[in-house]
Design a protein around this nucleic acid. Structure first.
Length: 432
RNA sequence: GGAGGGAUGGCAGAGCGGACGAAUGCACCGGUCUUGAAAACCGACGUGGGGCGACUCACCGUGGGUUCAAAUCCCACUCCCUCCGCCA
């Protein structure tokens, strides 16, 4: 949620920033007007409330003095003021709810360095990396044997069985098998081992309450993109960012403990409503995938370094895997609602001949913290909102696809990166 | 799933219809004393909203209700604890 106080104080600045994301200034003017109205009503309701309290106090006093007549008269007076008060409060709450409802739909202010653009076609490529780049090698040219999509390879070698997955849970629920399943497990183990120490490893619940989803901003906006278990008021998490953001909800943190950094691998569930028919083959877009997340709660001045650290870790892993990738600075049109700045990592996968998004590293400033109410104690004893930063390192379904396609040899076998050897029982070749 | 008990400030814990935003203890912070520390003593000590301000409002698990007045009474829900049952 954006800062209402900032909107009051610097309306033009906020309007300008949001207009870069396509929020019209008039939308903000309506919110400002509603806020003025709300505060006016609030003062009136509070004045009446104070009067009721004062009269009630006097009733008590009269009673103690055995002055029944005065008490009766005061009670009568208080009743009538009380009626006015309930009416005023109801009106105030109504306007307040309207105001809050509108505010919740307003996205975060984009950072100044976020490029302006209408959609993902206008994201800005910051750099590329490929194996051997530092040694002056040109971008790789992929051989014909690497031009086979992972779902065909997976089926041939018994690594991936989309059909059985569909039989069990419907389409776009992958079923990995044999060495394919082991590869997936190896990726998660490898990643968690890389991060633990600096980031505390967690294994949070895969489901969250409506209340939790609200605090992260996933509800009410994205409810159609999530799986719900209505009977128990639970939602399947679309990313472990949800439990991690909520973990310290409503807490006031000691700044000495910041940054607090967590890593977790969970299943991530996405209904992908609205993308029916797109990327339905293989692992390009699936309803359930495993992902390791890196997350930090930090002081505002620590945020930039925390963001850079997560990005560096995600890139280091891609490099260790020997996968070519590009780094994109998301433009205003493609930026997630809560994010002030997002860097995406996209891996090139030769079999499907395209870049696949495998990580999204975002800085939310205090947008999420305001909603989740995570604060720290400042020098002068007051409180301030923390900044939150997070990123995937990494989303395994697409990494799996890229590794299988990139590593395919002329004889049909697959060579996997050496760094995974300890997690694959020393075997980094999947025989044809 | 059944039966009981509970939820109050950083923690512990009192209050169970009238000046309670809340006793008390501990912790934390400032000070006195001390070479320094401890002890002792003094003081400060929840969060959020509104108002230029005096000040005011809300919050005692959550949501409703009763009342002139609710932490306190009533209803529903959630969570925690104990016991029983079932179970990976």
């Amino acid at each position: 949620m954006i800062d209402l106080v900032q909107l009051r104080r610097e309306p033009d600045f906020v309007k300008e920033a949001l207009s870069r994301r396509g929020i019209s200034p008039s939308t903000m003017d309506e919110i400002i007007a509603l806020d003025v109205e709300h505060r006016r009503l609030l003062q009136e309701a509070e004045r009446l409330r104070a009067e009721v309290k004062d009269l009630s106090r006097q009733v008590g006093e009269a009673r103690r003095n055995k002055d029944t007549a005065t008490a009766e008269a005061l009670m009568e007076k208080s009743r009538s003021v009380g009626d006015l008060e309930s009416a005023a409060s109801a009106k105030t709450d109504e306007v307040g709810a309207d105001l809050r409802g509108r505010l919740l739909l307003i996205p975060n202010l984009p950072s100044p360095e976020v490029p302006i653009g209408k959609d993902e076609t206008e994201n800005v490529e910051l750099r590329r990396w490929w194996p051997g780049m530092e040694q002056g090698k040109p971008e790789p040219i992929y051989a014909e044997h690497q031009r086979k999509p992972h779902w065909e390879i997976g089926l041939e070698l018994g690594l991936l069985d989309m059909e059985s997955g569909a039989k069990i849970a419907g389409s776009m629920f992958p079923l990995y098998r044999g060495f394919g399943s082991r590869l997936l497990r190896a990726l998660g183990f490898y990643a968690l081992d890389q991060h633990m120490g600096d980031y505390e490893e967690l294994r949070p619940p895969s489901f969250a309450l409506t209340e939790t989803m609200m605090s992260t901003g996933h509800l009410p906006k994205s409810q159609d993109d999530m799986y719900a278990i209505e009977r128990d008021d639970l939602w399947a998490i679309p990313t472990s960012e949800v439990p991690l953001t909520s973990m310290l909800r409503d807490q006031i943190l000691d700044p000495k403990t910041l940054p607090i950094r967590y890593t977790a691998q969970t299943a991530c569930f996405r209904r992908e409503a609205g993308s029916a028919g797109k990327d339905t083959r293989g692992l390009l877009r699936v309803h359930e995938f495993d992902k390791v997340e890196l997350f930090a709660y930090c002081l505002p001045e620590q945020a930039e370094a925390a963001h850079a650290d997560i990005l560096a870790r995600a890139e280091a892993m891609l490099q260790a895997f020997g996968l070519s990738y590009r780094v994109l600075n998301l433009c205003t049109g493609d930026l997630g609602t809560s994010s002030a700045k997002t860097i995406d990592l996209e891996v090139f996968s030769p079999g499907v001949d395209r870049y696949l998004e495998v990580s999204s590293v975002s800085w939310f400033r205090d947008f999420q913290a305001r909603r989740a109410n995570v604060r720290y104690r400042t020098e002068d004893g007051s409180t301030a909102l923390v900044h939150t930063v997070n990123g995937s390192a990494l989303a395994w379904a697409r990494i799996w696809a890229a590794l299988v396609e990139t590593g395919r040899q002329a004889d049909g076998s697959i060579v996997l990166p050496d760094v995974l050897a300890p997690y694959l029982g020393g075997k980094t070749v999947i025989p044809a």
